[in-house]
Design a protein around this nucleic acid. Structure first.
Length: 504
RNA sequence: GGCCCCGUAGCUCAGUGGAUAGAGCAACGGACUUCGAAUCCGUGUGCGGAGGUUCGAUCCCUCCCGGGGCCA
């Protein structure tokens, strides 16, 4: 059962002594509980008997209008106006902090994301990483955690050498190496001369800022790798064939891993060596929790990081690896393999030019991380008109319009004795928000937020269509309701990284 | 061969133990002298298959079929 921890509901639930959920159909009450069904086996009593007791308890409560048993032992509740008033006041009082601040204990959390090597502009594939990771970060922050975002990259490895060589070759008027990088951006970098890497990084940062992802810090693999020698004694290692191996299989990984290559291979540390140093660095910097956001092709590294944490005596719970499935590009019904080296990728900037930042971010977090995404390049622009993000934004803009025309949102207001169905539905919807946020935090999956936002907009539009706000008898109450709706929509959009416009 | 993810409406997807499984898109038909029609209302014989656990399974477990991915 989905928890619904809005305080107005929590109080009611506590008074009743049973968890409440919102039934699928309003015929089953404003809220319902299946507690009797769940308690029946352990109490060895018929569920309807327990349900009968709950009904009597419920009917003795002030906020409950009536209660009844249904089906095998559900208890359905109908609430009076006073409860709706409480709920509305709670949202207005909380304002921008509504549905948040529940983290206990509040932690210092690092979310490391994107982390693409600067061999080219940010692609749509990395954009999913960013959209997902940043939304998780936003949700964690709303919950009350202190969150920092970090970008990790390698400026020294073989790929980087190939990238530099490609730019240099083009600068000399030659073809890039066989397996080098090509594409318009390589030519542009070649034209200006100098080390292309810092300029590539600047461009990446600009793309991501435009995508509304701000990085607090940037970590360099080459700098971290230098600190390996001081850490080596703490590791459980052995030598084989001249290479140094981490005995990671003893700590939960599938295999042991080479961390320093054999002399014949150059005797250099592998990227896994840098992984180790980086992990220690994160935890020693004071983060209670280090979250890695990685594409599903890295699923093997989940066990690796946990093994490293154990080997070094850290609680592996402090290290989380969030995986998301990859983005496929479809063009003319054909799936294309993307390759940055071939230069046939879709860059984030181009994607944004086509469909806009709002639609792009919405689209990329809308689907759960476990779902592979197909992006039809040809239809990307057309998707703009069809994207529900505009439906939700329109509701927000419409509310802003009403509030512009209103004298002011009243400090105090009375609730009508009899609420209209649309008013009740809307308030009940708004009360769900804290539960949606909490679930997003627990699952490390913000995909429910866009879907919930559509429901809110839906309920609002229906309410709007049926009832006047201004110059109605219940104007004060309805202004409060509309303002509360705006708070929830704005918060919801912000957690996804989408703007809440005053006008459209 | 081992591991990870996914099979839900024509299409893209929500739904991680509850009652009659939902939305967007697409299609058709209605609603603007009124706070924004980028809106609202109506129209839908779908959970890949077989077992199991449970009062109750799209959801949990096992096996099979199909798609994607990683490692070897």
């Amino acid at each position: 059962m989905r928890s619904l921890p809005a305080k107005a509901l929590e109080r009611l639930s506590a008074e009743l002594g049973a968890p409440l959920e919102r039934p699928a159909s309003s015929e089953h009450g404003d809220f319902a509980t299946n507690a009797a069904l769940q308690l029946a086996p352990q109490r060895k009593r018929p569920p309807r008997e327990i349900a009968e007791e709950l009904v009597q308890k419920a009917e003795s409560l002030e906020l409950v209008e009536r209660a009844e048993i249904a089906g095998p032992g559900f208890v359905n509740l109908w609430l009076g106006s006073a409860w709706y008033l409480d709920a509305l006041r709670e949202i207005l009082d909380a304002g921008a902090s509504y549905g948040g601040g529940f983290a206990d204990p509040a932690e210092r959390v690092q979310v490391e994301m994107v982390s693409a090597n600067p061999t080219g502009p940010i692609t749509v594939a990395s954009a999913r990483n960013g959209a997902y990771g940043d939304s998780v970060a936003r949700v964690l922050a709303h919950a009350g955690h202190t969150v920092e975002r970090e970008y990790y990259y390698n400026d020294a490895g073989a790929q980087m050498e190939k990238f530099r060589a490609s730019v240099e070759a083009v600068a000399r008027g030659e073809e890039p190496p066989e397996d080098g990088y090509r594409g318009a951006y390589v030519a542009e970098l070649a034209a200006t001369g100098g080390d292309p890497v810092p300029r590539m990084l600047e461009q990446i940062e600009a793309s991501l800022e435009r995508f509304r992802i701000h990085f607090d810090s940037w970590a360099l693999q080459s700098e971290l790798a230098e600190r390996l020698p001081e850490l080596l004694p703490r590791l459980d290692t052995y030598e084989k064939d001249g290479a140094v191996w981490a005995k990671s299989s003893e700590y939960g990984d599938d295999d042991d891993r080479v961390i320093i290559r054999s002399p014949e291979q150059g005797g250099t540390p592998t990227y896994r060596a840098a992984d180790i140093v980086y992990l220690v660095d994160k935890l020693e910097r004071g983060f209670d929790r280090a979250i890695y956001v990685l594409g599903a092709d890295h699923h093997g590294t989940r066990q690796w990081y946990a093994a490293v944490a154990r080997m070094l005596g850290y609680d592996p719970e402090r290290v989380e690896v969030l995986l998301y499935q990859l983005v496929h590009l479809v063009s003319g019904g054909q799936q294309t393999k993307i390759s940055k080296r071939r230069g046939d990728v879709v860059f984030l900037d181009d994607f944004e030019d086509e469909i806009g930042v709002d639609a792009a971010r919405w689209y990329l977090v809308n689907r759960g991380p476990d779902q592979a995404i197909d992006i039809d390049v040809d239809l990307a622009a057309e998707k703009t008109q069809k994207n529900p993000v505009y439906y939700v934004q329109y509701a927000h803009a419409r509310i802003a319009g009403i509030l512009r025309n209103a004298p002011s949102v009243p400090e105090t207001f009375e609730v009508p004795a009899e609420l209209a169905p649309e008013e009740k539905e809307l308030i009940k919807r708004l009360v769900e928000f804290p539960g949606v946020v909490e679930e997003a935090v627990e699952r490390r999956g913000p995909q429910a937020l866009p879907n919930y936002a559509i429901r809110v907009a839906d309920d609002f539009h229906r309410f709007y269509h049926e009832h006047r706000v201004l110059e109605s008898e219940a104007q004060d109450f309805r202004l409060a309701l509309v303002r509360a709706t705006q708070i929830v929509i704005a918060l919801n959009l912000e957690l996804v990284g989408v703007e809440a416009p005053e006008r459209m």
